[in-house]
Design a protein around this nucleic acid. Structure first.
Lengths: 259, 259
DNA sequence: GCCGCAATATTGGTCTTACCGCTTTGAGCT
DNA sequence: AGCTCAAAGCGGTAAGACCAATATTGCGGC
């Protein structure tokens, strides 16, 4: 890792180094090498290594500009880049501060990745079934009365809204989200919510099928029953069966198109 | 969703607005509302809704500037932001193009999220054991001779480098990565590589302990044996035991500090 | 002496202009 | 027709200036 740009050499004026036999490393040669990238790397390194910690203020843009020997626009560009990544957040008037990456940011990145790379549903399904079945099992052990009530509420909504696609989809998502939340594991929550977002198409498609809709109601009830009884294995198996059924329905009734 | 800024009003030159009685919707009022944010939102919407698809070129910066009624720096800032998110990549000389979000980007976001939110190892471990045990089972069924050879190679390296922390850690990572790759599931690969990155501290800490190091060698061998024999359940169980042991070692010998 | 408020300094946000170097393209030459 | 090379197009960078909001300071009143 070169990590160039940390030294404050190259004060400002571009150096001339006349006729370096090499491919002339002077000025700019590679169009994909922006000056701001050096700044980005450097700041990220400072953050990673702790000299800039979450909550700290970055030096002001003008100082950074002189420090790196570049102009302010370059610094601003670097900060914009970092803002896009969610690691700093500038505030007009006061400085820019290093912030913790929000879960939404990570989730969004995951969703976009899944979307852009058109991953086959099989891969997503494999992970989802694995994690969510586990979550159901944990929920069976840990669910509080309030949790159970919330689950029952979403069941009622789901049951009472056949034909109401939007409502049914919401109730479906709610049911699964509640179970996820019961685990109290943020990593699980993050991953599953990302997968759920990516599967919105699948969900809508399936719930529009009467048979799949009925299956969903039946399966959700089975899962809920197992959770109420504290039957860890039962909940896990029921969830697994449910998700497999969802996958099945999608595959049988759908064009090879992907979520 | 306001989505302001799409109209090309406010042509360019700063208007004088002599004593506008109204709350003066002109200029800027909120320091956290950058003009570039409007552009970002708008472009993201175009991408999401398909009017800008992956691989397409963005209009050039000057045109965007006049279209949005802002100056070029604002457009550049918006593009920097999107570049940070990994959804566009500008190329000097030619225009900026919409790109697919790279897995590394999603992985990085996950890693930073895990790091910044100081999630307890327990949550990470729970997910890791779940997924990686599954992966080991799949690997037992699918591993090709080349895969097995690669695994044996990493075993040899691990075994031959006691005291060589860096080498041992690399071999450890390699072993787990190979198993992950055998699943052929990109989602699994993404998640586990993120978790592995987050656990670099744990890995280093543990491998420095002679007992944990020996355990690692033993467990890896057991996992490999099960994979070679095509014993799905055996591989899963062995992996699960191994990861639990790792977790155990960490908890017993470590300050409450988190990865 | 302490507190509140106004003047001021600081800082990010935006605009403008200008120039550089790479990429692309197309016209002219071979 | 194919090739070459110059012009046009485009992003990258610089420098200077001004605005609005925040943060700071210091003065005056209580």
């Amino acid at each position: 890792m070169s990590d160039a740009g940390i030294d404050s050499s190259q004060p400002n004026g571009r150096h001339e180094e006349a006729a370096l036999s090499a491919p002339s490393p002077s000025r700019r040669t590679d169009p994909d090498a922006r000056r701001s990238d050096d700044v980005v790397r450097n700041l990220l390194r400072r953050i990673r290594e702790g000299s800039l910690r979450t909550g700290d203020k970055l030096p002001n843009e003008r100082d950074l500009a002189t420090e790196f020997g570049v102009s302010r626009p370059v610094i601003r560009e670097a900060i914009s880049h970092l803002t896009g990544r969610g690691v700093v957040s500038p505030r007009g008037g006061s400085g820019s501060t290093v912030t913790a990456v929000a879960p939404e940011r990570a989730q969004e990145a995951l969703v976009l990745y899944l979307r852009d790379n058109r991953l086959d549903y099989r891969s997503i399904h494999e992970v989802r079934e694995l994690i969510e079945s586990h979550a159901a099992g944990v929920a069976a052990v840990r669910a509080s009365p309030a949790d159970v009530e919330a689950l029952q509420q979403s069941m009622r909504t789901l049951r009472e809204s056949p034909g109401h696609l939007a409502a049914a989809a919401d109730a479906d998502v709610a049911f699964h989200s509640i179970i996820t939340r019961i685990t109290g594991n943020e990593v699980i929550e993050l991953i599953l919510s990302s997968l759920h977002t990516s599967l919105v198409t699948v969900r809508r498609h399936n719930l529009a099928l009467p048979s799949a809709y009925k299956e969903a109601v039946r399966s959700h009830q089975a899962i809920l029953d197992a959770i109420v009884e504290g039957d860890e294995t039962g909940a896990r198996v029921a969830m697994s069966a449910h998700l497999s059924a969802v996958f099945q329905y999608w595959q049988e009734t759908n064009q090879p198109e992907v979520p």
